[in-house]
Each structure stands twice: as structure tokens, then as C-alpha cells.
Amino acid sequence: MSTSPVHYGLLSEQESDFAQACRQALAAGSDDPLAGGKDGWFGVGIAEELGGSGGSMADVAVMIEEIGAAHAASLAGWQAGLVAPVLSRGGEAARALLERVCAGAVCVAIPVTPMTSWAALDGDRDLTGDLIVLGSPACTHIPVPCIVAGIPSIAFVAADHARIRATPLDLVDVTRPAMTVSLEGVPVGEADAVVAHAKLLDEWLVSANLAAALDSTGLARAVLIKTVDYAQKREQFGRLIGSFQAYKHRCATMYIEHKMAQSLAFRAARSAGTDDGRLMALAAGKLTTASATFIAGEAMQLHGGMGFTWEGGVHQYLKRARTNEVLARADGYGRRLLLTEYRASRDAS
């Protein structure tokens, strides 16, 4: 597979090979939410002694970007970019769960409902509440944000717990399955693992922002290429529509937005784990997801009538882009945290 200027230009040879492997694997089963689990994708960024494949966030980034480009249902990106790093910071039970995540034996559903401290459940009582999650009945665990003894925590509850009802739900985003999860008095003590520390929910949001950004930059890349291909096939007034400057300049603007957003998302992945990395991840969660929505919207317009049809497929990118953006935004908390971090970085320098 050749790359184009639209692709990220600073992948190492090893990363390029991994990207290609991801593309091939996704082409086969793009509607399976567990895709990649048995190939070790869920633990790509986790050290081998913890059960992972020993890669870095840069490798995770490559994988998530490819999943986004294929608008695949696979939850592998969220497992590797979000679930695994959080579990790796937990205690024995969390580590045991992590090993099973890395082996692909466990797949954690991903809440679209914000996982922030003000949205967290009261963990000093039995957990009761509703979450909208990305995932299918094949998902084995639900991460529940809660405050336990004043400490922000995430309880990883088995999806088949007697006091959980998970009902498949249609999202407007048709590329990924979703469910409504209702917790009806689940004791925190019955969770398979609980991870807790003061900044945990903020960290979850930071990682979710990064994963959403990488997914979005992948889909933006794919839909931009799709648009440019269309512009070189479709003729009107006796010429290719891509020869009209009005059309070309809109494509160029899509490219400019995409390249800025892509650079930021990959840089955020490569600096994950540092203070600067948090700031970059939040910025990418804001900017890259928004720019993908813009790009997919432009793609819809530039495909004309075909862009508006179900069959034309552009809608899938636009819906997924908006979903990622809403997920990263977390009802405004994402941007609030970004502003806080930005001001802290100003004061530090």
C-alpha cells in the first residue's frame, strides 16, 4: 500500500509495517468489535511482563489511526489506548484483568457518557445509574466512574453481573455497535477490579481524548482521499469537477486542517505520559476531532448528491467524527480541562 501526502509522513519503518498489517487485518473483519483482540492488539502499548506486546503509545497510535480510517467497529484502539494504561496503574486485581485484556479474553465497553468526577456515581453506596457505551454483548466488562471514600475510581464490573442490564442501542453512528447499560445497585466490592486515585477520571478523559483524536485523524485521512478520488472521476460541464478552483480550494483547506490535526494527534501520542503529553492529548481531543467533523462535512458537500445517499458512505465518516467529538468533549469538561492545563503550562514556564 502506497502512502500519499495525506498520510502521516513521520512513521518509522517498523510503524509503517505495523500500519500495513492493521490495514490488512481490518479489511477482513471491520464490523467485529473484538477484531484484533486475539492478535494482541488490545495490549499493544503494554510491557511484555504485564502480558502486553511491548510496544509504545506510538504503536497504539498507528493502530487507532488505521481503525479510524477503516471506520471499523473494532474496540482495540480503546482497549490499548485507554483501558490498558488505566489498569496497568491499578493493584493486583487490575493487573490480573489487564493480562486478560492483553490476551483478548476481555473487552471493556467504552462509555460515551462522560467519565468525569461530576458525572461519577456514588461508590459508597451500591452503583446505580445508566451509561451509553460503545460495545456489543460480546464486551465482558463495564467501566463505571464512581467516587469511593472521596477518591475518584473506576470499577470494572462484569457485564454479566446480575444487577446489570445491557441493552443493544442504535447510535446514529452506524460504524460501531453500542449499548445502554443500567446498573441497578451493584456493590463496588463485586467489581472484578477497582482502580482509584485522585486524578484518575481526568486521566481517563485525557486518554479518551487522545484515542478519539487518533481515530478521527484516521477517518479524516480516508474521507479526504475518497473525496479527491471522486473529484478525479466525476465530470460535469465536460470536465472533471476536481478541475474547478472552487472545488480544489475546498480540498486544499481540508488538507491543511487535516495535516495540522494529524501532526498534533501523533505528537500527542508520542509524548504520552508527560505533562506536555497531557496538554497535547487534550488539545488534539478538541482540535483533531473537530477538524475531522469539518472534513467529513466538506466531503459530504463535495460528493454532491452521492454524498447525501446512504449508499455513498460519506455519512459514516461524518457520524463517527461527530461521535468522537462528543465523546472527547465530555459535556464541556474536556475543554475546561484543556484550558486549566494550558494555563498551568503558562504559569510553569
Binding site: R267, A283, K286
Partner: peptide, 18 residues
């Protein structure tokens, strides 16, 4: 607006470094 400009400034800087 500041938050969005901050994010944009990081993206433009990042692309210039690339």
C-alpha cells in the same frame, strides 16, 4: 476562544516541527 486558539497554536507548531 482562547482554548481553541491554544489547541490550534499547538497544532501549527507541531506541524512546523514536523
Amino acid at each position: 476562544v482562547v482554548t481553541d486558539f491554544a489547541a490550534r497554536s499547538f497544532a501549527v507548531r507541531s506541524a512546523a516541527l514536523d
